[in-house]
Design a protein around this nucleic acid. Structure first.
Lengths: 128, 128
DNA sequence: CGCTCATATCGCGTTGTTACGATTTAAAAG
DNA sequence: CTTTTAAATCGTAACAACGCGATATGAGCG
């Protein structure tokens, strides 16, 4: 994806840099160091993707009160079973919740205290 | 949206609760308290939505090194101007970055230290 | 085994997001 | 006032996420 880009897009932007700085090559090298490695971005991306949905945030808020089973979460979300199951799968894939199987039931819980810290931090940012 | 749901979906789930608990009405009331208010969910949702994109995470990582102008960010992302501008608008709407206008140029910076804390926390969660 | 019930997964129509060229706006500079 | 040039916005085609009914899986029970 970025291979296709790099041939065209950078050119125009580099013209700008040539005018802005006296030694554009050096500056360009500095800027490219600011671009993070793909791996650096991958992990938080998976987490934020899972968090970018109102119903999944509701599930996490509900689970912050303690462990709950799938059918209880259906009631809380007021959504059909397949919908809730899919949300829970995504939360699990992002390592935000853990599942405990007990007989016919599945019990879900928040995987780590960092998860609720994340929600609180995000809530605080958008309040100002 | 949840109005259309509540007529049908909850019924099946309530059957389950009736079997699970001896006083289902009481339990149901308790569960419904676990469902967070819409406002509680709205703010973090807006933030996570803005963070759920690899290029926007790259922009934030780049800006963690300090203030940068739009054309520098074009070079770093290696993406066309309109694409970068759209990403920056979304980050700004979510209050994650701030803009300083100086003549023809716009300089962007991280709005709050909480933003990078958020990225670091999210990165840590998915590592385990 | 066959039945029931909690979950998981599949299929697919709908909705939301992204990328990016083209166009517009706005601030210098000539 | 016209020309540059950085940035914003618009239009739209491609893509990804979502909702949810239908179907499958799998654990307990009779």
């Amino acid at each position: 994806m970025s291979d296709a880009r790099s041939e065209v897009s950078v050119e125009g932007a580099c013209d700008t840099l040539e005018r802005l700085y006296e030694n554009p090559d050096e500056k360009l090298a500095e800027l490219l160091e600011y671009r993070p490695d793909d791996e650096r971005v991958e992990a938080p991306y998976q987490v934020f993707r899972a968090l970018a949905n109102e119903d999944r945030l509701r599930l996490l808020e509900a689970l912050s009160h303690g462990e709950l089973c799938g059918c209880e979460l259906m009631v809380i979300l007021d959504a059909p079973q397949s919908t809730v199951a899919t949300h829970l799968r995504k939360l699990r894939e992002a390592a935000l919740v853990k599942r405990r199987k007990k007989g016919k039931w599945n019990y879900y819980r928040i995987a780590d205290t960092a998860v609720m810290e994340l929600l609180d931090l995000a809530g605080a940012i958008h309040e100002e």
